[in-house]
């Protein structure tokens, strides 16, 4: 139901907006939402941190860019290749890594992110190195080129809706319960007969899949990519979106991605102090809404309803 409303809202927004700037902004929010959604499945639900998530974003983007721009593949053929490669690498990385936990897992994924970034920069014959890779063709459906702002918007947000539906079903299934169980107590989850290692690897692969999908969309919509888009700061930004939006909340991914994408746009007026204000805003949110925006806003809403004297359905009497 909520997803239908969401889809309708997207449809109307696409019709109502005309400014290319707004389309571009919203398209980036959508791509970031996919990234945050994937990481939220891993961090929020399974409780495993990844500080190298931009690597999968980059693998998705560069795989499709190289295949289409250098080898003239159709993007629709490059898509499965990019997704497969990212998921395969995620599997190989997860195999030894998910034996680690807590800080060590953070350090391990951080290292993986750094290595991928350096490889992209240094392997300049294919990737163009620091100067980037140009000439990535736009997506096409039959004769229709999806290069207009509105088309990009619809492609990205259509993907986001699909991602939400899939993740929501997953979270409410037995597998979702098992993921949350791992988060709460891995030992107890084991005792229930949950194959925790296998489940952690699977969710790591799922989050890599979504990141690579975001990378694919990014590459074809922007048509130019360079290593800096996939550096350490991007990894951190994705983590921030998840934490700010709300861990273990699918809609929190949307909220977090929106805020983290819009914040720099709004803060331009502070010019030199932009980063200072940016940091302050994040600190204030974490201090006053430690559970993230989603939970925090819901709590405020509940409280105001109670203060207004309207009996609340979830309030404890």
């Amino acid at each position: 139901m909520r997803n239908i409303l969401f889809a309708v809202a997207i449809l109307l927004a696409g019709l109502g907006i005309s400014s290319p700037y707004h389309f571009q902004l919203l398209t980036f929010i959508g791509i970031h939402t996919l990234l945050a959604l994937g990481l939220n499945m891993l961090m929020g639900y399974a409780g495993q941190i990844s500080l190298g998530h931009a690597a999968f974003y980059g693998i998705g983007a560069y795989t499709t860019a190289i295949l289409t721009a250098h080898f003239n593949w159709s993007p629709w053929l490059a898509l499965p290749a990019a997704l497969f490669l990212a998921v395969l690498i995620a599997f190989l990385v997860a195999l030894p890594m998910l034996k680690l936990s807590g800080y060590y897992l953070g350090m391990g994924t951080l290292g993986f992110g750094m290595i991928t970034y350096v490889l992209i920069r240094e392997w300049s014959g294919f990737t163009g190195g620091d100067s980037g890779l140009v000439g990535i063709p736009p997506l096409e459906i039959g004769p229709v080129s999806l290069s207009s702002g509105r088309a990009c918007f619809y492609v990205v947000w259509g993907t986001v809706v699909l991602g939400f539906i899939v993740c929501e079903r997953l979270v409410n299934s037995r597998v979702g319960r098992a993921l949350r169980a791992i988060h709460d107590s891995e030992q107890a989850a084991c005792a229930m007969g949950i194959n925790t290692a296998q489940l952690k690897i699977s969710v790591f692969m799922l989050s890599a899949f979504l990141a690579a999908l975001a990378g694919f969309l990014y590459a074809h919509l922007v048509s130019f990519i360079s290593p800096n888009t996939f550096d350490f700061l991007t990894s951190i930004r994705i983590v921030t979106m998840v934490v700010i939006g709300g861990m273990a909340s699918i809609w929190g991914s949307l909220l977090g991605a929106t805020l983290i994408t819009l914040l720099p746009e709004w803060l331009h007026i502070f010019s030199d102090y932009e980063m200072v204000v940016y940091g302050l805003v994040l600190m204030v949110i974490m201090i006053f809404l430690p559970q993230g925006l989603t939970r925090g806003l819901l709590d405020i809403y509940e409280r105001s309803k109670r203060r207004a004297g309207v009996p609340s359905t979830t309030a404890k009497g």
């Binding site: 037995r174 319960r177 098992a178 949350r180 709460d184 107590s185 030992q187 107890a188 229930m192 949950i194």
Partner: peptide, 28 residues
């Protein structure tokens, strides 16, 4: 089946979800 020392429940999850997790392997 083991009832572990210190119970090791899944505290934020509902009583029902905890019980359903006990049947995890049977859902498949």
């Amino acid at each position: 089946s083991l009832v572990p020392e210190g119970r090791l429940l899944f505290p934020p999850m509902s009583v029902l979800d905890n019980l359903k997790l006990g049947a995890y392997l049977r859902y498949r």
